[in-house]
Design a protein around this nucleic acid. Structure first.
Lengths: 340, 340
DNA sequence: CTGTTAGCGCCTTCAT
DNA sequence: ATGAAGGCGCTAACAG
């Protein structure tokens, strides 16, 4: 168990080796002030010879910067985690930041501050929807601590930058597709959790699509999906049991669509012949469902990438774009009734 | 842009507030030495009143411990990331460790040391298969830096502890199932990447299953799957094109099974009537394939949990179990030919 | 059990 | 452009 302490080469040893004081070395590394040619080469040689690696912790103590980004998620975000992470990790490492990641036990158990991630161990936080309480957000805002929100608008009065996807227009288009191409009239909407902004915009898009063709909005057709398979399944079963007629389902997300498909299949309803089903997100799963799911593709990896870029910018310049919306696109597969 | 520096409450302020010196406070927090009742309560009050949060960096500088676990993955591990992470995160946070995670661009681009994660910013590393080069492993081993391997045996001569799943027996059993229950005789095996240990054991299990019933091993039936959908698909297409007869395929992992299913479907072969297909891992995806995939369930979340436990133990005591194998279980679905 | 104090390794004014 | 020296906030001897 060798400790870092024992085998660590310090800046002073390099100084001795290069026959200069420690200051030029620090400056040479940080590039904060020019260093003479001569000294530079001497340092440039001495450092690798001694295998000098600056001690991150000492540097942090001195500068009170961590060069670390924090990422907050909840257990619910499982299927988003992987692509999101890969986007974030990419820009973090390019920008020279480490990535500290923490998950709260369950959604709804909103985490308060102090959380495992904060000013003490990160320079800024990426906060995925629902992973930090409103109080927590207000707290970091007061602190002026850099935070960018992902798939979530800031609460009233706060100014935190946010990156998410374009929800409304895509929702309108996919519902229009159901109406115009597949002649659907009684279209169910399975909404997400109450506090989810994406879901609200998707619902707005849904209602808007009904307007032009003059299809009356029927509140009976709006059900709880909560972005959860089991809940969506239960809602669909209840609807079926109630005998409410419907010929299509726009599921607030693909996860819920899985539950819809199960319920429909169990009830002997044929998809898409009897009822069309479409979703939102285009999770990896979605292409493999039976039938393959027509859905709106959200570029999750890009969301992660852009969010991380915004955070780095915010940390470095104090500025970030208040809102960036990534474009979405409909992926036509068979569940809506399209041939292929 | 408030810096942590400005608003940070130091231990000295707490000392003043509690009318003691800094030492008892430190001891009170670290619990390294008993503190008198009186002082303890005074400190216990002063800390929250001042919202004192010990500065991690200062502590690290002083102790040369980071209280952080590192997790190394590659982009290929996408579908494992989420459950694995959730297991690791759980024990890390319970044990009071932060989790730093880093991904190498692609598998095969084995990362060398110094990598973004190492002794400078972590107390130990969780190394997922293929995410660190052999040279890197030898390096950390020499250093005596705590590392536990996940889904990978240590290279020759190294002693690094490893946690993975039981591969061989389960493979034997699932192939036996194909033979005994579904009367399959010409069973293809799609192996994983050359350097993957799991795949080797799965192949061993496969060959063993053929022995008892006296089915000759046919090298023509062993194809490259590489744990990649596209490669597995190509291999299956080639086999079909060659006209080599077969009535079942045991895919080295579920990912490859997806490619097999695609190729078979495209060729008009009916699964499971004409050919049975089984996989390994039980990814989330697998239950939703057409037909639902019979496969061996690897408890990925548990692997992550146990690996993190081992690492914490290794960090704290210098000891860990050399090898822990988590049990696996066959999940029967329809792709093998079972009714449900 | 408590207080004092010397580092931990680096960065950064401040003179030079 | 360079050197000297004082922190950054905490921990861990060492005295008391």
């Amino acid at each position: 168990m060798t400790k870092a302490k024992n085998d660590s080469v310090t800046i002073r040893q390099v100084a001795k080796r290069a026959e200069v004081s420690v200051a030029p070395i620090s400056r040479y590394i940080i590039k904060t002030t020019p260093v003479s040619e001569e000294v530079a080469t001497r340092i440039g040689e001495a450092m690798p010879e001694l295998k000098f690696i600056p001690d991150v912790n000492a540097r942090r103590l001195a500068t009170s910067k961590t060069h670390t980004l924090g990422m907050l998620v909840t257990e619910m975000h499982g299927d988003f985690l992987s692509p999101m992470f890969s986007g974030i990790e990419k820009v973090a490492s390019e920008a020279g930041f480490d990535l500290l990641i923490s998950s709260s036990a369950r959604s709804g158990a909103h985490r308060e501050f102090p959380s495992p991630l904060g000013p003490h161990n990160t320079d800024g936080l990426l906060v995925f929807w629902d992973s930090l309480s409103e109080a927590g957000l207000r707290y970091v805002d007061e602190l002026g601590f850099p935070v960018v929100l992902i798939h979530q608008a800031p609460p009233e009065g706060l100014n935190l930058p946010c990156v998410t996807v374009e929800n409304q227009a895509a929702s309108t288009r996919i519902v229009e597709h159901l109406i115009e191409v597949h002649q659907r009239q009684r279209i169910v909407f399975l909404r997400g959790p109450q506090n989810n902004d994406d879901s609200r915009w998707r619902e707005t898009g849904y209602r808007q699509a009904l307007e032009a063709p003059g299809i009356p909005f029927d509140p009976q057709l709006v059900l709880a999906g909560d972005f959860e398979r089991t809940i969506a399944q239960a809602s669909t079963e209840a609807l079926l049991a109630a005998g409410t007629p419907f010929d299509a389902v726009f599921s607030g997300d693909d996860e819920a669509a899985v539950g819809v498909l199960s319920a429909l299949c169990a009830a002997g309803k044929r998809v898409p012949e009897e009822v069309s089903v479409v979703g939102f997100d285009d999770q990896r799963l979605s292409a493999y469902l039976t039938p393959p799911l027509t859905t709106v593709r959200a570029q999750t990896e890009a969301v992660g990438r852009v969010a991380a870029q915004q955070l780095v910018k915010l940390i470095r310049t104090g500025q970030a774009d208040p809102l960036v919306l990534l474009p979405t696109e409909i992926i036509f597969r068979r569940s809506c009734g399209c041939p292929e």
